[in-house]
């Protein structure tokens, strides 16, 4: 299990990295944390002619407070997000979710730019980008552009980037919320999610004013459930609300079955997690 032959460059600027990708004629691959790419190389499922290593580029790893937004550099490791007090106070759902990202060794190496680009439908960071409606900043030969998650995540393991484009930053809006929850079930702690949901709610003078709901593991991409959000805001708040919310969430997804879980089981899990998540989110009344 050894990779096929490839060339390797370690540019010191994003511009040089983009140039190297342009020069590879679509045959190059970007190396960040390597946690998904290296197994693909070893299985020879990915056969780039050249690896463009971003790790030598200064200034791509940061967590920056921009008031109502938090900006995260593409090379920021999962472990930095997991332990950041700024993330804990401003993006608590992300903070809670990061504990579920694989294992310590992987969190030490893996990067946010890499995880989003890999676009695994059962990975936490793509789901968080969807949940927060993050802005993904990418750089290519003709400069920079910003992409929203719904456009970015095309399919399982497929993003919308051109071959020469590189994710450089992800900007997360700070949600106005009075309660939130993140729930995930995996075979073992650290495994890819069988089902997961993130919920945040904002209480108003009468009932809920706003809600954010996103799920993963139950479709080919992470999904924001806007209809469930609207339904939730419109609901009377009583003991039956979590059950009604759970039914709405389940009605919005049609998961596929695979080796790890059947479609029915995933739907069951998501329904249970939705109920539990909303109970938690509503319990912290602001």
């Amino acid at each position: 299990m050894k990779p096929a032959k490839f060339d390797y460059v370690s540019p010191s600027t994003v511009e040089a990295a983009v140039e190297a990708l342009v020069a590879s004629n679509g045959e190059g691959k970007v190396l960040a944390g390597g946690q998904s790419l290296l197994p693909l190389l070893n299985f020879r499922m990915a056969r780039p002619t050249i690896l463009v290593d971003l790790n030598g580029i200064e200034g791509l790893s940061y967590i920056e407070d921009r008031g109502d937004r938090i900006a995260i550099g593409a090379l920021t490791r999962h472990r930095e997000l997991e332990h950041s007090p700024l993330i804990a106070s401003k993006l608590p759902v992300m903070s809670a979710a990061m504990r579920h990202v694989a294992h310590l060794a992987i969190r030490n190496r893996g990067t946010i730019g890499g995880s989003l680009s890999h676009a695994d439908p059962a990975a936490e960071l793509p789901m968080l980008a969807t949940f927060y409606d993050a802005k993904i900043l990418v750089q290519g030969p003709s400069g920079r552009r910003t992409i929203g998650p719904e456009e970015f995540f095309v399919d399982a393991l497929t993003n919308c980037l051109e071959p020469e484009e590189i994710v450089v930053e992800v900007e997360f809006p700070v949600l106005k919320q009075s309660g939130w929850a993140f729930e995930e079930v995996a075979h073992r702690f650290g495994d890819f999610a069988l089902a997961s949901i993130a919920v945040s709610v904002l209480h108003g003078p009468s009932g809920l004013e706003a809600a954010h709901v996103a799920v993963m593991g139950v479709a080919d991409t992470p999904r924001r459930l806007k209809e469930a959000e609207q339904a939730l805001v419109a609901m009377e708040l009583d003991d039956r609300t979590p059950d009604r919310f759970s039914e709405v969430v389940v009605s919005q997804v049609s998961p596929n079955g695979d080796l790890h879980a059947s479609a029915d089981y995933r739907r069951h899990l998501l329904g249970q997690l939705a109920k539990r998540a909303l109970q938690t989110a509503l319990a912290t009344k602001g």
């Binding site: 075979h187 069988l194 790890h260 879980a261 059947s262 029915d264 089981y265 069951h268």
Partner: peptide
């Protein structure tokens, strides 16, 4: 497995 427990309970 959880899947088998689920199927049996269903």
């Amino acid at each position: 497995t959880p899947e088998r427990v689920f199927q049996l309970m269903e």
